[in-house]
Design a protein around this nucleic acid. Structure first.
Length: 288
DNA sequence: CTTGGGTCCTGTGCGC
DNA sequence: TGCGCACAGGACCCAA
């Protein structure tokens, strides 16, 4: 599910409830998510203060005062919801419906100083958590080798030229590869390629510098606008206070098979194709 | 090394 | 309504 804008939305929602507060008690309801949780998981969280909540690609990073960082990945269906200590729905500021916790897949619950609870729920259990020394976080096996943050200065046209060079793989697959660029998933790759007028079927290594430049700019724009919209809620994405994002209403191609290309002066029709077993949406007329 | 396909898991929505 | 199937925002793992 969640790509960079959704994870960033969750991060921003967790900060006011969690940052600077102590985890009074951690409750672990299963031994594993996608992989086994680390040894003594709950006790390594209990009594620790969350100093800072960061993000790397699609990973949330909760830095604890024990010098360890709680690494969290939401997988496809993961949620991290805050239930406030008082009237639990009063804090919702969005006009959309607020999700009730199912309880069924609440795998990890953090009771927060002051009475709130942060609940990690993940029906499909493709998500993950781990604890790792904060000063060595970049060497954690899930984070090592990840490409640059697309909203940082390290991401630029030259970087794309470098990582695409000589690649025969499709542009679609290349952008989904977290080792080349962090944070993009199926939705935002489709949207960025539309914005850059590039076919997802092109070989990555075929792009010229002008095209890489265009793609760089569009990726930044798409992600920035999506974050401002609170991410996309196609099926079940919720922010930390249960609110829905609304960037899905701004999709130009994703999930819009058969509709007219939204680009002015293009008479094309959005197509859905399958690339490496995943849906790609694009306009074959203007995405060359 | 690169690349493509299968796989993990549960829920939902659709056609019949 | 009920059933079966296709599909879902991720990404690891392995075979070729």
């Amino acid at each position: 599910m969640p790509e960079l804008p959704e994870v960033e939305t969750v991060r921003r929602g967790l900060i006011p409830e969690l940052e600077g507060r102590v985890i009074v008690k951690a409750i672990q309801n299963r031994l594993d998510l996608r992989w086994p949780l680390p040894d003594r998981f709950a006790s390594r969280l209990t009594g620790k203060r969350v100093e800072r909540i960061g993000r790397r690609g699609k990973y949330l990073l909760l830095e604890l005062d024990s010098l360890e960082t709680l690494i969290v990945h939401l997988g496809m269906s993961g949620r991290f919801l805050i239930h406030s200590g008082g009237e639990k729905l009063e804090g919702a500021t969005f006009h959309h419906a607020v999700a009730e916790p199912s309880g069924k897949h609440d795998h990890v619950v953090l009771e927060i100083e002051g009475g709130g609870r942060a609940v990690y729920n993940d029906a499909r259990r493709f998500g993950a958590m781990d604890l790792w020394p904060t000063d060595d976080i970049e060497n954690h096996k899930l984070l090592a080798g990840m490409g640059p943050e697309p909203l940082s200065n390290a991401f630029n046209a030259q970087h794309l030229i470098d990582v695409f060079s000589g690649r025969k793989t499709s542009l679609k697959a290349a952008l989904l590869d977290q080792r080349r660029i962090a944070g993009l998933g199926n939705i935002y790759v489709c949207e960025a390629l539309f914005g850059a007028k590039l076919s997802p079927l092109r070989a990555a290594g075929d792009l010229d510098s002008k095209e890489c430049n265009r793609l760089t700019t569009v990726i930044r724009e798409v992600l920035t606008v999506a974050i401002e919209a609170g991410g996309s809620s196609l099926r079940d994405f919720h922010g930390a206070s249960g609110e829905l994002g609304y960037f899905q209403h701004a999709f130009k191609v994703y999930d819009r098979e058969e509709s007219a290309c939204p680009r002015s002066r293009c008479s094309g029709k959005i197509q859905r194709i399958v690339q490496s077993a995943r849906s790609t949406y694009y306009c074959p007329t203007c995405q060359i």
